[in-house]
């Protein structure tokens, strides 16, 4: 929706306000205003990225007295041809994609369901909303601590205890983070707990901006609640849902803190939850292999860029974005 806004507004601006920069005597004002932020971005985002590209052509170890050695594309060829590295990197990418494939639809739908749930004027609604928003202010470092205790293996763990209670003891304790089959799922639930209300708030705002007349028209047609929801609500907030899906996708690929913190506690098969981001940090800082980590960074950035472009293009093609 963003690009469209630009296109609508930008050409309009000169008409409204013809450029008279020469007359006002503030010819440099524009670049001057922008320069502090641009300088910051250049130094702290662009320069390190360029440096990552450069480092990826070297064999260089963190904290090592050994001088960096130029190795050309070795780090890249290893990443794709060394069976171990390729498998690990592939697994990490797969985990990221799995996470995104589950989290994006689930979290978007959940956000919609929650928004519908709280979008009603009932007594005490403020309290319920407050409960739902609360996790949003929890830093991940703290969230990970709490959920590590909740997922604790054995009967001591809160989740196991709860399940045991509701099943009357038929569900026995499970190693949520340790079992490769549930580790990623456990992290997904935790992530949803922490952040779904962000998406919910966005959807809620959209719900409340759907014109009331549309509902009135629909109810005159004797449309059922469900039919109203499908035919009026969903189309009305379609763009917002797409936006939510977009940002959730980006978040999914940045997945780091919770995995990093949780997979280093207890007995966890790290491969089952490793994401590209945790792998980069692990390679660079735990194994001190800066060159390899830099190559991973570069590949990863290419992938994210491609995904972002495809998504934007797809969203625009369907035409709804304004």
């Amino acid at each position: 929706m963003t690009t469209q806004t630009q296109q609508l507004q930008a050409p309009a601006a000169p008409v409204r306000r013809p450029p008279k920069s020469g007359l006002t005597g503030h010819r440099f004002a524009g670049p001057l205003f922008a320069s502090p932020a641009l300088l910051g971005l250049a130094i702290f985002l662009v320069a390190p990225f360029v440096l990552a590209v450069v480092l990826s052509f070297y064999r260089v170890q963190l904290n090592s007295p050994r001088p960096a050695r130029f190795v050309g594309f070795e780090q890249y060829t290893r990443l794709f041809t060394d069976p171990d590295l390729a498998a690990a990197f592939g697994q990490a990418l797969l985990n990221n994609f799995t996470f995104a494939l589950i989290v994006v639809p689930v979290q978007t739908l959940l956000a919609l369901a929650l928004a519908v749930l709280v979008n009603r004027q009932l007594r005490g609604m403020v309290v319920f909303r407050t409960f739902i928003f609360m996790p949003l202010v929890f830093p991940l470092a703290l969230t990970a601590v709490i959920w590590r205790l909740i997922y604790s293996r054995g009967d001591q763990g809160l989740l196991n205890a709860l399940l045991g209670l509701f099943s009357g003891g038929t569900i026995t304790s499970h190693d949520w983070l340790g079992d490769p089959a549930t580790a990623l799922g456990a992290i997904i639930v935790m992530s949803i707990w922490q952040s779904v209300s962000f998406q919910m708030i966005i959807v809620l705002a959209a719900l409340q901006s759907v014109p009331a007349e549309l509902y009135e028209a629909a109810s005159l047609d004797r449309a059922s609640k469900w039919a109203q929801f499908i035919n009026v609500t969903v189309p009305g907030i379609r763009n917002t849902l797409i936006f939510v899906a977009l940002i959730t996708t980006i978040f999914s690929f940045r997945l780091f803190d919770q995995v990093y913190l949780l997979s280093r506690s207890g007995s966890v098969d790290r491969n089952s939850t490793e994401t590209v981001m945790t792998q980069i940090i692990n390679t660079g800082f735990d194994n001190n292999n800066v060159g390899q980590a830099a190559a991973m960074t570069v590949i990863f950035m290419l992938i994210i860029t491609v995904i972002a472009i495809i998504q934007r293009a797809a969203a625009r093609q369907r035409g709804g974005i304004q």
Binding site: R27, P31, L32, L38, L39, V46, A47, V50
Partner: peptide, 28 residues
């Protein structure tokens, strides 16, 4: 710090960004 503005505007900033990253490399 903020000595970027040249009439060329954008190009100047790009040059500065490039300079900053090269400086960073040298630093490293």
């Amino acid at each position: 710090m903020m000595t970027i503005p040249k009439p060329r505007g954008g190009a100047g900033i790009l040059t500065a960004a490039a300079a900053a990253s090269i400086a960073a490399l040298v630093l490293t």
